[in-house]
Structure formats: C-alpha cells, structure tokens
Design a protein around this nucleic acid. Structure first.
Lengths: 332, 332
DNA sequence: CTGAAAGCGCTTACAG
DNA sequence: CTGAAAGCGCTTACAG
C-alpha cells in the first residue's frame, strides 16, 4: 500500500471553510482567531490528524530548528548526559543530530567549524574538546560542555563548587598526608580544572603530592600510573580522574602487593555502577549527568536567542560517596 | 555582525553565467553537463562556498532525509553502537535524531507509533524494545535492533551464532555441572534469546541448571539473584546477562563467603573496561557494538529503499574472553 | 546539453 | 479578525 500523504494546511483550510492563512495563524496563536473560527479549525485539524510540515515551515522561517551535539568517540561516553540534552532540546522544539568527530585536534576543530558554517544547525554543543580558538567568530553559537568548570573558576566559585577540594579534605581528615593524582585527558577543561584544584588544595592544606600522572581517562592509564611509582614514594592516597581510572589504579596497586584501602586509598569520580559493586567498592563523586546535559542545552539555547545564560543547577547536586576504597592510611 | 547569508543556487548561477536549473543539474550529476559548463559552475560553487540548502531540497523532494534512533534510557546505554549508527547514517546522507522514549511499554509504543506517523523521519531504529505488535503496518520502516537475535534463531543459525552455547560448553569443559543464569530484561529479544539458548545448551549437554533468575540488566539484580539462592543448591557456574550483572553476582557471592572463581565461576558479557580491571577480572564476550550499529542502520536503509536486507557482519566478530572469574569448580 | 516554468507547504507583511 | 499574494531555495518534467 502506498503510504498516504499527510494532510496539508490547504486541506485543513478547505474542511474548516477558511483560508489556509487562518489555519497558519491558528498554529501560531490560536487566540488570535475568533472563537467560532478557532473551533472550526480545531475540528478540522483533529479530524485530519494534521501535523504541520516542519520542513516547509523551516524553509519559510529560514530556521532549521536543529542542533548538533558533537563528541569524539572515546572511553568517555556520556550517555545519560546525551539523552537529557536531547530531551531538553526536543522540548524547546529542536531536533538534535549527534555527530562524532574523529581524528586529531586539528581535524576535529576543522570539522566543527565546517558544521558551524554549514547552515544546517542553529547551534552546537560540544561534549568533547573542540580545540577552537574563538567561539565568538563562529556563525552559530558553540557551547563547550567541558569548559564549564573553567568558567566557574573564573567566577571565583571554585572553592565552593569543587568536589576535588572535598575529596582532598576528606582524605586528609582520615590522616593522609602523601597524595597522588591520575588526571584525565588534559585536552578536557574538566581534567585541567581538577588537576589545578588538586594542586591548590594540596598546597593550601600543607599536604604533599608525589606528583600528577597525566592520564587519558582510561583504566590502563590508572594502572600504568600506579605501577610506574617508585616503591618508596610513600603515597597513601590517590585521586583518580574517574571511576574507570580508579579501577585501573586499584588493580595496579594490587599487582604491586599494595592492598586497597589497607595500604592505599583510592577515590574515583562519576559513580559508575560497576564501581559500586567492585571489590573494594569505589569511593566516588555522584555526578548528575542529566542536569549537566539539560544545563548545557539551556545555555546553548540562551546563546541562540541572545538571552543571558541561565543559572546552572548542575553543581549543587554532585556529592561525594564514601565506600570501601578509602580508609585511614596504614599505621593511623 | 549580522551572520552573512549562505549563497543560493541563484547566486551561483549568476556568477557562472548559467541558469539555476543547470546548477541544480550539476549538483545531481556533474557529468550531465558539457565540460565547459561544468567548469564554470564548479568555479562558481567553490568561490561562493556554496552549499545547497538541504531544507529546500527536502521540501521539494518530499524526503526528510532523517532517521530516528529511539531508546529507553536505562542501565543499558549503548554509546558506541549509537555513534557507529549515526556515522553510517550520515554517510548515507541521513540526519539522525536521538529520541528517548520513557514510561511503560504502552506509552513507549504509542510514542514510537506517533513518531512513525509524524512524517518527520523516513525510518526508525529502536535500540530498546518497541512493544509494537506489527512493524509492517507502520508508515515508515522500523528496525528493532533487539529482535535481531530472534531472527537469527528463526534462520536456524542459532547454534553457530550463539556465544551462549560457547560459554556453557567452555564452563562444562572446565568441569562444571550445575549452572545458574541471571537473565536480562525479558522485554529485550536478546535477553529472551540468551535465556532460551542457555536452557537448550544445558539440556543438550546433559548438565543441570538450578534455574534462571529474571533480572533487568542491573548489578543489583545480579546481587539479588545470587543472595536469594539456597545455600545448598550446589551451583558452581553462573552466566550473567552482562558484565554489570556479573559484577553484582560476584559481589553477592563474596558477601555469602563464596570465593570467585574458587567456589563459583562467573561469566559476563560486553567486555566492559571496568570488568577487565576488576578483581577478579571478568570472563566475558567481546561484542562489536560498532558493527551492530552499522548493521542495524544498513538494514533500516535497505528497508527504506525496498532492497533486500544486507548480510550482517556483526556476529562473526564477537568472541569469548577468558579471565580470572572462571576456573574449574571446587574439587576438580 | 540547457533553460523557463511550476510547485513542494508553509509564514508573513499588507490590505481590508 | 480574516484573506490574497508573495516568496523561502530548491528539483523536475517539459521543451527546445
């Protein structure tokens, strides 16, 4: 069977006995019609199951009503964030296209610039680093979800906002004095920020750090970081960039004969479900990915419409979760 | 600065000194132009950085060039599959919209049917179960990624295709005789299939199963399944629906004082990176999610164009990975 | 091989 | 409050 064509605005108009102009008006603002007219149109729309042709509307309004979410496929796939972002966009009348940008930093930013110039989308949300120098010069707004942390820093909200400080303080309260940080990919603003805050906290609290290992969000990087440590470094607490990395750290420690948390405490990030059931279960930061996705799209939407950026709600909901992987240092 | 408007086909035509019809023809099939004309158009297109307005094209061709990937947000978020699916669709000239469908089975299928009738997409790929009775009656093709396994069954390729058989055979070869399966959400075709194949394999090989626990893909369900087992059930091998479930199973076993794999062997599925670094590391099935995503979109595209379904390549690439969570049963 | 014309289904001034 | 007209940027018969 031939798929029957959807009803057009003209058919609705004919059935309702009005002009298609009036139907269009009804679609924009039903209250602008005389009640009697409105009811006729309403009836016609319903009985024909009319849905406006969005392509035609786009054509006429010169607005695509489309957003792109770009990401580099990698170990760091933020599914929940993505779903929440799409939903928020849909609610605002936007379609969302997921585009993954591969290759090196240069290739990726070229791809994103091309997308921005394509005229196909009204805005871009980048979940992985864009590598773009200036987002201001682009044709359409680009929100880089990862620079969020950086902005907070600029606002001086750092101390209050950062879970990293809480982690270090918590471990210090347990008696730890010698720390180690396995960072995430330094192309990511969030990774750079966590590293900076870690160093500041160590300094401010008069603790010592045996250094920072620049990882890449992978478990392997956590494993490598720990196994590369000198045996006599004396570290008793490590803060990992996320739970996956933490898992690698734990495994690496075990492979050296260090028990966790007996000899070494390990803190993760993200509250991955596997970390909750791992042995030892991972102390971590519960992150509200939904809120992050929502906030990011809201900021993008605000930029598109030229309104001031909305207040982010995300931060307040993150919180520390203490599990088996952290304990007082040996001999404490 | 006002964002400058993209060049139109008319501007290209004027610059090239031809009609816009000719430019359009160039876009469709450059070889249909006289070489001299083609070169003029080529030049004009390049110098104006012309990109056809896809909305206008859609309007004229009455094709949206859009696909939807629907999923129910849940513990089971197939990021890699999604990215591979989008890329494959893009390469075929389609945009992909991610839509998450929430609520109960009924609400979800209503939402999907609505999407199919919306005229906004040319096809739908469902990553979670649609609950639709018949996909044939829909306005646009719907491919349910999860029923894939079921179809294979119908084809009698089951024995060859199923990793579940290999898992059970492997565990049996280790000496295990008493099995247990924690299944995934039975709304999923893949979960139903694995359960059925598990039972068949147990039967065929003359092994015994203490039963199947109908889980929901979560670690908690794995934990609950194991802790609900009678102490004297004698099970020595459990096959979990995936690695997350397996993690819960291991943790549950440990909480009962059963060592893994000393007392109990546990097999997972999906090759999650955290499972590789867990202690014990999880034996699992490496699944090629990219291939699955690619294949699913290719099947959808084939249905849209009315061509026969392409040969799936996914299955051949899945393979078992043996790690620390499996070993011979106690006393073997 | 190329061009003039029609039309895809809407929205938005402009009149009335 | 409502309608007639123009036009968004393309593609596709139809002529030539």
């Amino acid at each position: 069977m031939e798929p029957k064509r959807p009803a057009t605005i003209h058919q609705v108009a004919r059935l309702a006995g009005v002009s298609h102009t009036t139907v269009s008006r009804y679609l924009q603002d039903a209250d602008s019609l005389k009640p009697k007219t409105r009811i006729k149109v309403e009836f016609a729309v319903k009985s024909l199951d009319y849905r406006p042709n969005l392509v035609a509307r786009s054509m006429r309004t010169r607005r695509t009503n489309r957003l792109a979410i770009v990401l580099a496929s990698g170990p760091h796939f933020p599914g929940r964030l993505l779903v929440a972002a799409s939903e928020t966009a849909h609610r605002a009348g936007y379609q969302v296209d997921i585009v993954s940008v591969e290759g090196g930093q240069r290739a990726r930013s070229a791809r994103i610039e091309d997308l921005a110039r394509s005229g196909q989308v009204e805005g871009i949300l980048a979940i992985s680093p864009t590598g773009l120098k200036s987002k201001r010069l682009q044709q359409v707004p680009i929100v880089e979800s990862e620079t969020y942390d950086d902005k907070l820093r600029g606002l001086g909200e750092l101390a209050a906002a950062s879970e990293m400080v809480e982690i270090v303080e918590y471990l210090a309260s347990l008696g730890h004095r010698s720390f180690f940080h396995v960072s995430g990919d330094q192309d990511f603003g969030s990774a750079r920020n966590r590293k900076a805050v870690y160093l500041e906290a160590i300094e401010r609290l008069g603790l010592s750090s045996v250094g920072v290992y620049d990882g890449d969000w992978t478990a392997q990087s956590g494993f490598d970081a720990i196994t590369a440590l000198p045996g006599d470094c004396g570290v008793t607490a490590v803060v990992a960039a996320n739970d996956v990395v933490a898992m690698g750290v734990v495994r690496g420690a075990l492979s050296r004969g260090w028990s966790v948390p007996g000899d070494l405490s390990v803190f993760g990030w993200d509250d991955e479900v596997m970390g909750k059931f791992a042995t030892p279960s991972l102390s971590t930061v519960a992150v509200d990915r939904e809120a992050q996705g929502r906030d990011a799209i809201l900021r993008l939407l605000a930029e598109i419409s030229g309104e001031p950026a909305p207040e982010p709600a995300a931060r307040t909901i993150n919180r520390l979760i203490f599990r088996e992987s952290t304990a007082p240092p040996p001999g404490a």
